[in-house]
Design a protein around this nucleic acid. Structure first.
Lengths: 222, 222
DNA sequence: TATTAATTGTGCTAAAATACACAAACTTCG
DNA sequence: CGAAGTTTGTGTATTTTAGCACAATTAATA
């Protein structure tokens, strides 16, 4: 099954810069917005202006994966969306588990925007017995003992961690042990994990502290 | 007041790559963790291993701002923390307003991690009358008409937007009009704003769609 | 149909970011 | 005290990323 073509494809894939992959979801998000507004066609220039990215950048990014546009016209939005979804493998629904049922976990569990962009939370877990059984949308919070069963049942590869920083490393280790391969970590800490596991971080404070560098100082207590 | 030294400093500041500034909060976060665990000294190598960054990278980043280490020993953690806080201007508390009091806004309003990293939410606002007066921690949700007063009172430059995508552009425009200069946007949309306004985005779906590129396809419905 | 305008995909160039490697300085220890 | 071992800060080289510019192609229009 490892035909020359496959290995070539695998090699190409490795050759595509991660930073390019990172922009595709942003393109997709904006294209879907345009599509929903009824627009049928767009150009790299229009997209670039909306995103603050040069048109050449967009064209070059897309050119890694094929030729999706038509000269003189631009891109058919519906078609390009489909192609991007295929490239990113979000042309279907991925099961995701959520660990941590605090305020943030609660907000994530009830968020309705996941499904139509390719993801569904299939289990919510917390270490605190007080939380067990509590309803969050269509799911009830389960104990950490039940994570493994859920992951097995849904062949789940992705986890969201919305746990305190102190618990994060231990939780992450246990998730990796049962087969989780990608983690979206809301805990304000950098995790140490085997390199086959991909981790992405969301920490609003990091963004704030980045912003303040460029502001004139204006604190409450100087 | 615009002495040569100032203008030199301003020029230097512009010369420091944004990507470097973006790493400083991550260094700071980890240094504080080490500090809280009782450690007094660290090296660029130790820090780099924890963060998955080369030691040379860390040293070069820091060298933009001064010489903080000692050869043969490394860095005094408490001292380096103080210096980084000063560079990032988080050696005090910045007032932040929060627009949007849905589930996410609620979670953010109740999050207790802001204060000791330099930020405090000083007002929560929502357009829905049903939300007005509702308690969120020590704050009550106010109407959008009251944003301006609050921003003026606290000389607030930073806003969090936790509103639906459809409302985001209009909300952002109004925030900019009353003087907000930095926005942390949780709405899944790229905003069009004057370039003196800095916007950072948090959208978990963007991270998910980035991750799936590297996973073997394993969706619920293929 | 011929002309003009628009837009893509890409080879080449420029700029930015990262990694290497080492002198200088400090610490430890026999 | 001297030698061996660390670690910083930085000049240089390498790699990565972004930008430019244009031939090729399509659409629109007169």
């Amino acid at each position: 099954m490892t035909l020359p073509h496959d290995s070539q494809a695998a090699q190409d894939k490795l050759a595509i810069p991660d930073i390019v992959i990172g922009r595709l979801p942003i393109y997709l998000r904006t294209l879907k917005l345009l599509l929903n507004s009824g627009q049928e066609v767009t150009s790299s220039q229009e997209l670039g202006e909306r995103l603050g990215i040069s048109s050449a950048q967009i064209r070059k990014d897309l050119s890694h994966f094929g030729e999706f546009g038509k000269q003189g016209t631009g891109y058919n939005i519906a078609y390009l969306c489909k192609q991007l979804e295929k490239i990113l493998k979000v042309d279907c629904v991925w099961p995701v588990i959520l660990v941590g049922a605090g305020h943030l976990g609660h907000a994530l569990a009830l968020y309705e925007g996941f499904e139509n962009r390719g993801f569904r939370i299939v289990g919510v877990f917390d270490s605190a017995p007080a939380k067990w059984g509590q309803e969050m949308g269509s799911l009830a919070v389960q104990s950490m003992d039940e994570v493994s069963t859920c992951v097995g049942q849904f062949h789940c590869q992705i986890a969201i961690m919305a746990v305190p920083a102190e618990a994060a490393q231990a939780v992450a280790d246990s998730l990796v042990k049962i087969g989780i391969r990608s983690i979206l970590c809301y805990a304000p800490i950098t995790l140490s994990l085997p390199k086959h596991v991909r981790v992405e971080y969301i920490d609003p404070l990091i963004h704030f502290q980045h912003m303040t560098f460029y502001l004139d100082k204006g604190c409450i207590d100087e």
